[in-house]
Computed example of a mutant assay.
Amino acid sequence: MSTYLFDTPTPPSVPVKGEDKGYPVARIFCVGRNYAAHAAEMGVEVDREAPFYFTKSPLAAQASGATIAYPPGTQNYHYEMELVIAIGAPVFRGAVADAAAAIYGYGCGLDMTRRDLQLAARAKQRPWDLGKDVEQSAVFAPLTKVAEFGTVGPQRIHLEVNGEVKQDAHLSDLIHNVAEIVADLSKYYHLQPGDLIMTGTPAGVGAVLPGDVITGGIDGLDPISLTIGAAE
Rank of each mutant, 00 (worst) to 15 (best):
M1N: 06
S2I: 06
P11I: 03
S13P: 00
V16A: 00
D20G: 06
G22T: 04
G22V: 12
V25A: 02
A26N: 07
R27W: 00
F29R: 00
F29H: 10
G32Q: 09
A37R: 12
H38T: 13
E41F: 04
E41M: 03
M42A: 11
V44F: 09
D47V: 12
F54V: 10
T55N: 13
T55R: 04
K56T: 10
P58L: 15
P58C: 15
P58F: 15
A61G: 00
S64T: 15
S64F: 02
T74L: 05
Y79A: 08
Y79S: 09
M81W: 05
L83D: 00
V84N: 02
A86G: 05
A89H: 10
P90F: 09
V91Q: 12
V91P: 14
A97Q: 12
A100V: 06
A100L: 05
G109A: 11
M112G: 07
T113A: 03
R114E: 11
R115H: 11
L117Q: 13
L117Y: 06
A120T: 06
A120D: 14
R126L: 15
W128G: 07
L130K: 11
D133L: 06
E135Y: 11
Q136D: 13
S137E: 08
V139R: 11
G150R: 10
Q155E: 11
E160F: 13
N162W: 01
L171V: 06
L171T: 08
S172N: 08
L174S: 05
A179M: 03
A183W: 00
D184F: 01
S186Q: 03
Y188H: 15
D195I: 10
I197T: 01
M198F: 15
T199V: 04
G200R: 07
V208R: 08
G211D: 13
I214D: 05
T215P: 07
I218A: 09
I218T: 09
G220F: 03
T227F: 05
I228D: 11
